[in-house]
Computed example of a mutant assay.
Amino acid sequence: MNESCSIAVSNPLCELARFGQSPWLDFIQRSFTENGSLKRLVDHDGLKGVTSNPAIFQKAMGEGSEYDTRIRQVLSERRVDAATLYEILAVEDIQAAARVLHPVYEASRRIDGYVSLEVAPHLAHDAIGTLAEARHLWKRVDRPNLMIKIPGTLEGVEAVRTAIADGMNVNVTLLFSLEAYKKALDAYMAGLEVRHAQGLPVSGIASVASFFISRIDARIDAAIDARLAAADPQAAALKNLRGKVAIANARMAYQYWREVTQGARWRRLAALGAQPQRLLWASTGTKDPAYSDVLYVDALIGPETVNTIPPVTFAAFRDYGTVAPTLTQDIPGVERVLHEADRLGLDLAGVTDALLHEGLAAFDAAFIALRQSISMKISSMEKGNAFANLHEHSSGR
């Protein structure tokens, strides 16, 4: 049983620890932390980390009135714009979650217990701007179990290298292809090497590489279905690939990780106390109702990995997930799936490239919408305050 689970009876989430995998939650919200829900997941389900992104913050802050009291309080103290107010709220949320997870951070010897905060999406192709914001957020949050999320673009990876050399914990996000993942892993090791060359310790620095799963199947399966509808002569072979390509892609990334961590370059860093950059499976909620809703958790369980799981999938896996060392199963079969996908012209490379651009655009749109909703709240509250002051003055109070 996972030692962080305090209940007498284990469940599939707790049992992931037996195979070296850490369940994280792809969700953050102020009330969820304040009402003890986050701590209950830590205590009862072995939760070991939290990830956030602009879309999650947009849902948390931009919808409903949960943050209104705090917004009014900030506005009563000083005049701020939407960007500044967002940062105040986000930093507070991250700090609060980091406090809940700090015991996990200590018990795991700084392997787990992290909370991720993403740099602004519009900086995805600006290495200098990304690094500047990463340094700013690292200083603002000021928690040892913070991870700065940086997208795995060419420019982002450049920033990752320096951020690691600075001693920050980094979550490299929006990785879809094996080639992009290789660059992220190399950037982590290169950053550690720079740090060592400067006479600084490389121990205690953590990184994950967020490798996205279900979006790949959603796109590949749609292409397969279109060809099936057109009576493609290769229908049988195409149909056999539905729901398999994303898992195969992830398992090959893990095979690459295993090769690298057994190599001389990594062994030199490990001897200095460095911990490996773990693969983190992201986008693991099932999008096709024809598949099991825990497919992308069941199929990707293996040592020194993380699965950041959406709340609905998290609850489903708790109830009926199957825990087994699946990540290294049938590698020859995995290779055949990818070979067949290539032979049949499913263009995995084109799909992963498109998904990166779409992911960046979606996060940027969510970030813009978030700032707009916060700006509207500021305007509404300021008008309300002005009306109240006018009414008070006209009443002679």
Rank of each mutant, 00 (worst) to 15 (best):
I94V: 09
I247H: 02
I220R: 03
A218Y: 04
R336I: 14
A354M: 03
A127V: 00
E118R: 04
Y86G: 10
F387G: 09
T33M: 09
Q234W: 04
R268M: 06
D342M: 11
G199N: 00
V42H: 01
R397D: 10
H339G: 13
G49E: 00
R371T: 06
D293M: 03
A235S: 15
G199M: 00
I111E: 06
T173K: 01
L41V: 13
L16A: 01
Y296K: 10
K377V: 00
V160W: 03
G129P: 01
L192T: 14
T261A: 07
T313A: 01
A230I: 00
Y291V: 06
D126S: 10
L360Q: 08
D68Q: 07
Q275L: 12
E87R: 13
L137E: 12
E259I: 05
A315S: 14
P103H: 04
E118H: 05
F314V: 00
Y181T: 04
L178N: 01
P276T: 02
L117G: 06
C14M: 11
L295E: 12
L174N: 00
A315Y: 11
A324Y: 12
L355K: 07
R40I: 08
E92V: 08
K59I: 03
A369I: 02
I368C: 11
D347N: 12
A223E: 14
Y181K: 06
M189D: 04
V50Y: 09
A97L: 05
R140A: 15
V80T: 11
A229R: 14
E335H: 10
F387C: 12
A324W: 12
P144C: 04
F367S: 14
D293F: 07
I301T: 01
E193H: 04
L280R: 02
A299P: 08
V194Y: 07
A369E: 11
E77T: 12
D166R: 01
Q58W: 12
V172T: 15
I205F: 07
K383D: 15
V312L: 11
E63H: 09
E118Y: 06
V160P: 02
G333Y: 07
E77A: 15
R70I: 09
S22F: 06
Y181A: 09
V74T: 02
V104I: 15
Y291M: 12
G46K: 09
L279K: 01
A299S: 15
V50S: 06
H196S: 15
R343V: 14
E340M: 13
L370G: 04
L370N: 06
Q29A: 15
L75N: 04
H196T: 12
K377N: 00
